[in-house]
Amino acid sequence: MIAIDIVGDEDLELLLEEVASVYGYDFTDYSKASIKRRINRICLIDKHKSFTELRYKILNDQSYLSRFIEEVTVNVTEMFRDPTFYKTLKEKIIPQLGVNSFIKVWIAGCSTGEEVYSISILLHEAKLAHKAIIYATDINPTVLETAKKGIYPISQMKLYTENYQNSNGTEDFSTYYSANYDHVKFKEYLRKNVIFSTHNLVSDRSFNEFQLVICRNVLIYFDKILQDKVFNLFDGSLESLGYLALGSKETIRFSDLNLTYKQINKEKIWKKTR
């Protein structure tokens, strides 16, 4: 059975306003349908019987806030997801980055880090890692702790190895991690050039200039107005001729960037043309 929503449209609006003003986490411009679903899901999982109960818990128990943020923001990710995307990165984009004396990459919304290790592997294989730095950011400090450790369930490795091979990866994927019982730990050298840090795309500013900004399956949770704002943030964070990479069903089509960015192949990678 699908339960009737515990949190309705007006409740949602009230709650998001309050969370923004009390805690500074602003979800008011998130896509309404998805955030409403996430919040109603929290009510079911944590057994809040009414909106009042949920609201009281969030506003009066600060320790619950991190759980709320973790559940509201989606943290599902995988290594080398969409192999053709990584193939294009590997064959078309990374070699281009190599001409710079210093390479700066920003992975925005890196979640538990699977993409970070994927990109780090590509940079190592291209022998560019020594002059590269990856800024890996997320709104949620808890997932960044996981990302820093680089420890993942061994059960995922079959899929990740397949993805890696399908992206034209030629090494033995298992050389990148050591296995221990039911988990693997990705090798230390893969995170040597990575800086993990919290960054909120809604409220924080640009903090550097990059040649490549990767932000995949994050913008789908934002409404069009917030998407636009974040596109401008990315634009301001990209060097001219830099690249912006999005998730496979995301697009800059509805934004101003559409005029000054050129799409690479059929992948969701755009080059800033000025």
Binding site: S31, K32, A33, S34, R37, R38, V74, V76, N217, I220, Y221, D223, K224, G247, K249
Partner: peptide, 14 residues
């Protein structure tokens, strides 16, 4: 998911 303005929101959750 479908928004009230009949645009589509995609979601990569569980």
């Amino acid at each position: 998911l479908i928004e009230k303005d009949r645009t589509v929101s995609l979601d990569y959750s569980e």
